[in-house]
Write a protein that binds this DNA or RNA. Structure first.
Length: 374
DNA sequence: AAGCCGGGGTA
DNA sequence: TACCCAGGCTT
């Protein structure tokens, strides 16, 4: 157990520091549970500077939960485009509809009720409960884990069940029940600006005198994480079936990256490939389409890479010009090249699309590439 | 409990 | 490069 005097000092020094060290942000000080929820979901695993423009965009387009609930899933996804972790956008939309239709537009007034909503976990439930209604629930995010692990020189791995429970209880013990909103803001601000992952500014820290990691000189070594992310390399060969005007577009299925976003049908290979026609045959076979008498000659228009946390995506964009386009299968549709920008695209495909618009006047236009004629 | 899910910033 | 970011869901 923590000494009571230590707890009191922690609260007092933290709150005093926060009062004199504001970090202005558009969602700070808001009491509207909808806007708080919106901001917190946008900020999940996302830096403040990165999520900022998206929050402004969403707040302007969807001022209330009713506005959001009235939108389509595709419109929400399009506005979310480029931010990543797209399940957040779909859960945001689903929960908005649920709140409007089942809860009369009112968010649950307690932590447990909030926790039941799709896309709201322990962190976001505590954030809404404390910021909107000043309920005494401590937020535990990456900042808080780092501050607590260092303050107590605690090397319990933070990426484990016991570790998570341990630090959550510590945060709840330290939380000032009189000012849960200010306390939560303050401890996250401290982690983001002073108690940083690298080169922590310990000399500026209001908790410096009580910090055990500082005393032991091990602040930069904490917190401890056990799990290492292994990066998988993937080669995605996109086939841009086109007659020069339209292209075949697919809605990506669940169970893989970029679920529910749109891109081109593709074949995945374990190694880089150079034979476009070979890819074409693989693709036709995979979708049980008959091989045309005269196979088109795909042209590799563009290739790009995107490094994600857990995958290295190598994208190859093959231009497949033909008079007769393949039939549309499930989740496939034909759209004009101009209309591609109306769909939510993965960043990598968006990069290709930018290239396509810049160089569309010099695209292969020969009609002798073959005819899809099974 | 472990794996998966994006994109970008920083040392 | 490696690590991390106002985490949550699925298996």
């Amino acid at each position: 157990m923590l000494p009571h005097a230590l707890i009191i000092r922690f609260r007092q020094q933290l709150l005093q520091w926060h009062a004199s060290c504001p970090r202005p942000m558009p969602w700070k000080g808001l009491r509207d549970p909808y806007l708080i929820w919106l901001a917190e979901v946008i900020l999940q695993q996302t830096r403040v500077t990165q999520g900022w423009p998206w929050f402004e965009r969403f707040r302007k387009r969807f001022p209330t939960v009713q506005h959001l609930a009235a939108a389509t899933e595709d419109e929400v996804l399009k506005l979310w485009e480029g931010l990543g972790y797209y399940t957040r956008a779909r859960n945001l939309w689903r929960t908005a509809r649920y709140v409007v239709e089942q809860l009369d537009g009112q968010f649950p007034r307690n932590y447990e009720g909030l926790l039941k909503l799709k896309g709201i976990g322990p962190y976001t439930a505590a954030a809404i409960a404390s910021f909107a209604w000043r309920l005494p629930h401590a937020v535990v995010d990456g900042n808080v884990l780092r501050v607590l692990a260092r303050f107590l020189a605690d090397d319990t791995p933070i990426d484990s069940g016991p570790g998570k429970r341990h630090f959550t209880q510590l945060a709840q013990t330290l939380l000032d029940p009189q000012y849960p909103d200010s306390f939560n803001q303050a401890i996250m601000d401290l982690g983001a600006t002073v108690c940083t992952p690298h080169n922590p500014q310990c000399h500026k820290c209001p908790l410096h005198s009580d910090c055990r990691a500082t005393r032991q000189g091990i602040a930069p070594l904490l917190p401890v994480k056990r799990r290492k992310t292994k990066v998988r390399t993937r080669h995605l060969h996109y086939l841009i079936w086109t007659d020069g005007q339209h292209t075949l577009l697919q809605r990506r299925p669940s169970g893989d990256i970029w679920a529910a976003l749109y891109d081109f049908p593709f074949v995945e290979t374990s190694h880089p490939t150079t034979s476009g026609q070979q890819l074409l045959r693989q693709w036709l076979h995979a979708h049980q389409l008959a091989e045309p008498r005269s196979l088109p000659h795909p042209t590799l228009l563009w290739q790009g890479r995107q490094r994600l946390t857990h995958q290295l995506i190598c994208g190859y964009y093959w231009w497949v010009l033909t008079h007769q386009l393949p039939p549309t299968l499930h989740n496939w549709q034909y759209v004009t090249i101009e209309n591609l920008c109306k769909f939510a695209l993965p960043k990598l495909t968006g990069n290709f699309y930018t290239y396509l618009l810049n160089f569309k006047d010099s695209l292969p236009t020969g009609k002798s590439n073959g005819i899809y004629n099974p």
